[in-house]
Design a protein around this nucleic acid. Sequence first.
RNA 1: GGGCUGUUAGCUCAGUUGGUUAGAGCGCCUGCCUUACAAGCAGGAUGUCGGGGGUUCGAGUCCCUCACGGCCCACCA
Length: 920
Amino acid sequence: MSDEMKANGTELAKAYEPAAIEEKWAKYWVAEKLFDAAVDGAGKSFTMLLPPPNVTGRLHMGHMLNQTEMDILTRWHRMRGETALWVPGTDHAGIATQMMVEKQLLTEGTTRKEMGREAFTARVWEWKRQYGGAITDQMRRLGASVDWSREYFTMDEDLSAAVNEAFVRLWEQGLIYRGAYIVNWDPVMQSAVSDLEVESEERVGKLYSIRYVLAEGEGSIVVSTTRPETLLGDTAVAVNPGDERYKALVGKMVRLPLTGREIPIVADEWANPEFGTGAVKVTPAHDPNDFAIGQRQGLASISVLDKTARVDLPAEALGANAEGETARARYQGLDRFEARKLVVSDLEAAGLLVEVKDHAMAVPVSQRSGSVIEPRLSDQWFVKIQPLADKAIAAVKEGHIRFTPEMYEKTYFEWMGNIHDWCISRQLWWGHRIPAWHCASCGGITVVRTLAMACSKCGSKELEQETDVLDTWFSSGLLPFTVFGWPATRPEMAKFFPTDVLVTGFDILFFWVARMIMLSTHFMLDVPMEDGSVRGLKDAVPFREVYIHALVRDADRQKMSKTKGNVIDPIDTISRFGTDAVRFTLASMASPGTDIAFSEERTDGYRAFANKIWNAARFLLMQVERGGEGGYRARVGVVAEGAPLETRWIVSRLGAVAGEVERALGAYRFDEAAAAVYQFFWGEFCDWYLELVKVRLDFSSAGKAETAVTLNALVTVYEAALRLLSPFMPFITEEIWHGLYGALGEQVPAKSIALSRYPLAGDFVRDESAEGDIGLLQELIVAVRAVRKEMGVPEKEAAPVRVFGEAGGLAGRHADMLAKMARVSGVEVSAVALEGAGVKRAARFEVQVVYERVVDVAAERERLEKEIAKLEKVVASSEKQLSNDGFLSRAPVHIVEGLKKQAGEMGELLRKAREGLAGL
RNA sequence: GGGCUGUUAGCUCAGUUGGUUAGAGCGCCUGCCUUACAAGCAGGAUGUCGGGGGUUCGAGUCCCUCACGGCCCACCA
């Protein structure tokens, strides 16, 4: 140790520099594999699954909040002696990843189609190997205490095999079907997407009224539509059966404008007489409602748009006349929006456009590509969801899964109750290819776990594998058991399943949380028993609790988005404030129900907190060293009984705070837990205890019991506080913890503070009387400081005080404390009420600062008048209540007694204040 | 259209089953370089708890209503 360092009394660097210590410990934790959870680990298990970020992802504040909360929970449980397992992994994110690589190809002047499927997927794998670790590298930097040995990727071989297994089982159970249905089609991705991947945008569109002329005889019918271009694929006009205006027309044929094809007028309940003209054109291939009408009325479906949403007119779309050929020449190949313009102008030219008006409408937009969704008739694979949903609803209804905040249960039930079959096929190349083979000779479908050799229907060997891949959420929905080896039977299932809690944002409540519940409760999950047998778990929940956290917004409460340019990069914030400070900020602001407006000012405040912890350590080490020089050896241990008052107090407070943290974390109140440790550490330990021990510690001569006890208490309490803080601020606590033991010349009790024991309320002796006494002394000290300030006593000048009342004796006994904390040069305990200037009166004492300088009478008068006004209000309201018979007879005794006591005290204060004012 | 949710100090937010003077951080004002920390210490000011009505001995808290936000879900052309 250099002399300079000795002078500082510490081996800790003089200033708190988060960057260096954070990098060091992050590497250490990973290298030492401290957070790998053994399947035969001690104690009960605590398991969580990281919501797998997209492999293409970069860490954003939402991840950081999510991971901070999960890390706090994991570290907390681990320190409680449980085998804590937090499983990390990444999602192959079909659409996002494919788009990213396609974009890259574009810059190289090639496309996915040019490359072909095999070369393309090879290319994506290559991309994944090269860049796919970005987000997990960021997690390592955050110190997320995950078990890296169990890291998975959703397209790993074993997970892919599990996906096939799940698919095959559902197929065999008749819960997967394939068929031609209207789906949400993304013309950019050229794939179906699920309902959840579609957002609706409010836009002002147009409502067009178009005249369809009767094929025979006079007359016409006017239909209303927002999508005139689809009339090319109309197969009927529908009117409400009860609509008198059109009764006579039902059954007649009309000539479709532009193509001249003839279609019938049908009666269908769907047509709303109130809307538009009450007559609706029916395009079964391009609208889900029309599709339903088509089914009911036995209408044909004619697709007139291709995969890219360009007009593609099949023969049946055209009338058997010259008009048809003209139409094909005019519209074929046009983009749907171009086609709309042309169709409208052609209709206008033909005199068939009756009216155009603005119309507010919800346009479906693809979440991924941003393009307008085109409802499209196509062959897709679906999961028959109702049977799964029923079980998933029951699991929550019966209390096997609990939501926090509770209100999300309602959201969950609401969605589950109105669920539609799940379209699981995607026309992509990146993903789990559906394990189904189409037979070239009989057209049958063969679904097998591995490779189909022959058609299961006709035995033909002419098979071709389905080209579609599965929705990304299909595989992630299986994760709670596939990460533990399902369908194989591994001991992990017994130890770690079900997981304890799922921590996530509400945005993936339906995408992921609901799917996991449905899939987990559906499949039979095998669990190995101790005697070697296997038990099948039915209706198993994937997790017992779901904690839904808030959304992180920017300081102006705006949603962060790339387009707005208000995205706060956590890595950038971390580099400026330190990981611990950012973590603490997120934890502090994570109150349930409201979104987090991330503020840098707040983060800066918690950086100051980290600095406070750091400097407290430096102070502590200085005392340890001074103690050593004076023959005192400090040790972390149990605080001896009969310790001085302030030590009994801080130990008692520590126990109380440990209890509060325990309660808060158990209820996912990260904010309350953080507030409790913050307030304790800064407001009690630093502001009071560290100041008070300065009086107590006396190293000038050896063998003083008080000094020895206090020195040990100091390091003992501080060490416990570090452990208490550790889940919230793992880096700084780790650094100081090692430094502290080093300075004490002791071996650290564990390789990491994260592997030490978490402080529990019961570890510390509660001492009500010490808390009461210190509480009173604090009140007294604050009063003296205030009076001194009011009187203008110079900071450095000490002045004697007189104390009257309950605090008198205590003040007399602890004059040294008053001297240190409030520059009191002497305490005179008065037997009579105090008179004169510089008096402050509280409920349990009066204190007077004896100082010759004249008080500012005007200022004093103003202060007293203010105080009197305040007291009068309180007294009046108490008296009113106390004179109320209803209150006296109905309120509980302790409330009445409490109020009486308070009224008495306040009345007394009021009397004294008035006296004081009169005496000025 | 249905559902959920919010409105508390200048700002960001806490406030347990209704119960004694509604809190914190930041900011603001005043004074301190008190050798752990000026990223600090001490003191101080600031609220008709969105409006109105009701229940109750008692309402920031429960009910109704109004106003203004936010979010989710939804197949009305």
